[in-house]
Design a binder for these strands. Structure first.
Length: 259
DNA sequence: ATGACCGCTCATAGCGGA
């Protein structure tokens, strides 16, 4: 089965590209981030026509997340329980795992953080702490778990186009990476690094300065999987094709294959 | 040193993104 995540940077603008991509890449569960629309504007009918169900959690102007799936999602949770937040960043649901079991899927749009000395960075740290505590509890309830989305954090220098120039900048600070390691230490694995990858593999490129053409990007979109899913993982790739579209998202989809 | 590009908003400049 295929599991994927894609920050679409406005679903209203990118809907045709998402539908085209799904037609070419049938996917069991696709997590979307940055819908930038309210719940009443979510294109549920368009996905239904394409054979997909959806769970969504939007808001005006910013943020917004969804899970697009072939099977219905159950036990849906929106945002981190107990963590007061006026931003729509998290959606979780349970799906059939293709082998008669169940798969818990969490799609998340992690805070950007803006700059390491900003209020938004403080919020990012608090949010990451709350996410970790909740995911830890989710893993006890749901042993087969996928945590995917736009993390807005690089793991290390391999995830940066300019490790020297970008050292210590947002997405690349020690503080953010410690929080990412705290998630990993729950028993989650970065599925992308289970496999050999091309050098300079990124999932996001700035719209400015021909960054995509020059492959000046970051790898900040991740699919983390629980220990008992590792043996089923057969591939994890970043699909750069949609980044070449006209009017593309600045992010590319990341796709995990489970046997 | 700065801004670049993109999407959005009770718009027409400013914010947030990354």
């Amino acid at each position: 089965m295929k599991i994927a995540t894609w920050n679409v940077n406005s679903l209203s603008v990118r809907l045709p590209q998402v539908l085209d991509w799904l037609a070419a890449n049938p996917t069991d569960v696709l997590a979307l981030q940055e819908l930038k629309l309210t719940d009443d504007k979510f294109p549920v009918a368009a996905f239904a026509e394409a054979g997909y169900q959806a769970q969504w959690f939007g808001q005006k102007t910013y943020n917004g997340v969804a899970l697009i799936s072939q099977a219905p999602g159950t036990d849906v949770v929106k945002n981190i329980p107990g963590f007061e937040d006026d931003m729509s960043r998290v959606i979780a649901a349970t799906y059939p795992d293709g082998t008669g079991g169940q798969l818990r899927v969490i799609g998340a749009y992690f805070p950007n953080g803006q700059a390491p000395d900003s209020d938004k960075f403080v919020y990012k740290m608090r949010w990451l702490d709350a996410l970790r505590d909740w995911v830890k509890a989710e893993m006890t309830r749901h042993p087969h778990l996928v945590l995917m989305g736009d993390y807005n954090i690089t793991y290390d220098e391999l995830d940066m186009w300019d490790p020297v120039g970008l050292a210590g900048t947002i997405h690349c600070t020690d503080a953010e990476r410690e929080k990412l390691q705290a998630l990993t230490s729950l028993g989650l694995t970065d599925s992308f690094r289970l496999f050999e990858q091309p050098e300079k593999s990124f999932s996001w490129w700035d719209y400015r300065e021909f960054a995509f053409r020059r492959n000046r990007g970051l790898r900040i979109d991740h699919i983390l999987i629980s220990e008992n899913l590792k043996d089923r993982a057969t591939a994890c790739v970043i699909d750069r094709a949609p980044r070449k579209n006209e009017r593309p998202s600045d992010h590319a989809p990341v796709v995990l294959t489970l046997a």
